[in-house]
Design a binder for these strands. Structure first.
Lengths: 195, 195
DNA sequence: ACCTGAACACCGTTCAAGT
DNA sequence: ACCTGAACACCGTTCAAGT
């Protein structure tokens, strides 16, 4: 698809790798296959990612995991309405879930590999949203982990279930969109009980 | 440790594999290394697990994932006290989290592989506990997924964070026990808002 | 029935060599 | 600076052969 002599860059390598994972699964992401897709020998990749496949996988995580929940900057310096935080976290949760499911092959990496920066940014911004909503520091920290844990965990359950379902399998057709939203509402309602 | 001529069985293979994963990580679980640990050629394993490594990994999941939340059968036919369900789920959540963290290397498999029976049993028993506590069917289904999603997701966040932390790293010492319990309480409190 | 040995088609990565 | 080719030490798995 791309011109054969487009220069090899770190970004292009990671984008192509993500494309392979989304299309064929994590198990088929191979340095040799990645080289083929880039029209280059596999060994050329090491010039741009010296740490090799480790660095490649970390790049995939960073690309998928970092979706801050930062409040959209208020238009004219006004504070966001205090009651908005639940609606805001609902829409952030929906967006984050959608991204995780779009790149379901990266999910196991996201949960496993110690790539501290990737999730740290997201956690910090969740905490900040809760603090601006009036929660104390300790409650904001607990709440951020509760929300992120739920969103990631539920996305993983969904990815498992929908991947396993054969298209003609009529048993237990679950409305995952609704179930995720309902569960997120449970978590958000529970946050009100924090000290 | 075991006698060299102990017979090779499916259970012994899976136990030994789990031991390797717990001790050295999932990446070092190899058919050849597993054969060494069993004092047997790698190819002998295929005789007991015809589907090979696929079947081995499914066996690991089944061993770790299936922890039903079933209520301990009441002593003399009495129903468990209706108010007990939160305490019961709190203690079940603690036990499930502990098991997941004990076998953190299996976590990515648990979240990724389509081994329907493994988590189905746990989900069903969570649903049953909620139904016995008085929740309607739809609410029990939502609640079960919310709880399980939170527990698994939070365990994964913990496993990541604690694996990454160097022992002398003083930054941000988190009390994960407390944080998990507080988050689970958030979820359980939120369940009360379900219709 | 249960295990072995050799072989096949793959991996990730190193390293000297080309341009 | 950027890429290639050959090589090394590994994989999972098949298959014929041994007992």
């Amino acid at each position: 698809m791309t011109s054969p002599r487009e220069p090899l860059t770190r970004d292009r390598i990671i984008d192509t790798a993500l494309h392979i994972v989304d299309g064929q699964g994590l198990g088929r992401l191979t340095m040799r296959r990645l080289g083929d897709a880039l029209q280059v020998e596999a060994m050329a990749i090491y010039h741009h990612l010296p740490r090799g496949k480790e660095e490649l996988l970390d790049g995939l995580i960073a690309h998928v995991a970092a979706l801050p929940a930062a409040w959209p900057r208020p238009a004219n310096g006004t504070r966001p309405a205090a009651g908005d935080w639940r609606a805001h976290l609902r829409s952030w949760g929906g967006a984050y879930r959608a991204r995780l499911l779009d790149h379901a092959g990266v999910l196991p990496l996201l949960m496993t590999r110690r790539n501290p920066t990737a999730l740290a940014e997201t956690t910090a911004s969740l905490r900040e949203v809760l603090r601006m909503a009036g929660f104390l520091d300790a409650a904001a920290a607990t709440g951020a982990h509760t929300i992120l844990g739920y969103v990631i965990g539920h996305a993983a359950l969904e990815a498992r279930a929908t991947a396993a379902r054969r298209p003609d399998d009529p048993e237990e057709a679950v409305d995952w969109d609704h179930r995720f939203a309902a569960g997120l509402d449970v978590v958000l309602a529970g946050l009100l009980t924090l000290p």
